[in-house]
Amino acid sequence: MSEQAMAAPRRAAGTLVAVSAAILVTVILLAIGSPNPARALTSFFWGPFSNRFFFGNMIDTFGLLILVGLGVCAAFRAGVFNLGGEGQVYIAALTTAVVALSMPAAPAPIGILAATGAAVLVAALLAGLSGLFRWAWGTDELITSFLISAALVPTVNFLIVGPLRNPDSNLMTTVRVAGQFRFLRLLPPSTLNVSVGAAVLLAVLAHGFLFSTLRGYELRMTGLNREFARYGGVAVGAYTVLPMAVSGGFHGLAGAFFVLGTHHAAIEGFTAGLGWNGIAVALIGRNHPLLIIPAALVFAYLEAGSRVAGLQTEFTFELAAIIQAVIFFLITAEIVLPRLRRGRRERSAP
């Protein structure tokens, strides 16, 4: 309700400094690492806006990043951590493809609902399992969600390149889903589709849930001080398992949209760190659903920039990865360090 509002200007200034520093480092890296720095810089910063294709793809990524950011936020607000987003997105994408392919003649609403629902359910169950372990045995959900995810990725890889592979394609991919299931494209030839609207809407709904409902209040209290919530009669067990499941659900939705909206098939390795980027987006957005929207935009822009620069110049993909790492590092440092410092001061001087 209020803690965000109060310190918001100061925090915003901090984030601005971090993002500026990240951009500065990017410029320096581009200048050093690219044989033609001027062209690389232009491609990086201007490229995402230079045509419909690049711009649309960036906005598509933006929508997916919102969803995974919300996924991380859902767990974090309840004081649990879902580190398995990557695997959850991936298996949800495969589930979507499999369900959609199994009913090629179904009418669009039924097929889309079934495929999306199955994806959300699978991801939610997997993440919820970690929550359940935590609740039942106190197992660290951070570790179990990570391990489950780590086991899922190669499993999904195997299914895509093995039994489910489209024999007619040179790519390691499944067959493309039937045309009626594909989301309406908004800026062809880019992958931007209507799902971006759903992502923004969900962020607004999540905000309303967290800050204006009874359950949202209970969830936040559990996250801020579990002992306090338990003492106040909040069913903290439920707020361990359910937020993990909801977190998985968001990742599942991202996976479903990734197939139905972006790629129309499950391709080996195509989630490429989307789950991990969700953590970065949630951090930049301070686990605040509305702030996750601009955070996802910043991250999508930087990712698009490095992709365009990689396509148009000699700028390598590794350099792009380094730049993303630097941005992630600077922004988390800006967020985590003051928090640590504050925590220390308060513990010693209450």
């Binding site: 309700m1 803690e3 936040r220 209290m221 801020l224 001080n225 002992e227 306090f228 919530a229 003492y231």
Partner: peptide, 9 residues
């Protein structure tokens, strides 16, 4: 630790 949520209003 038990009686309050220090980060809440």
């Amino acid at each position: 630790l038990r009686g309050s949520s220090m980060d809440s209003s």
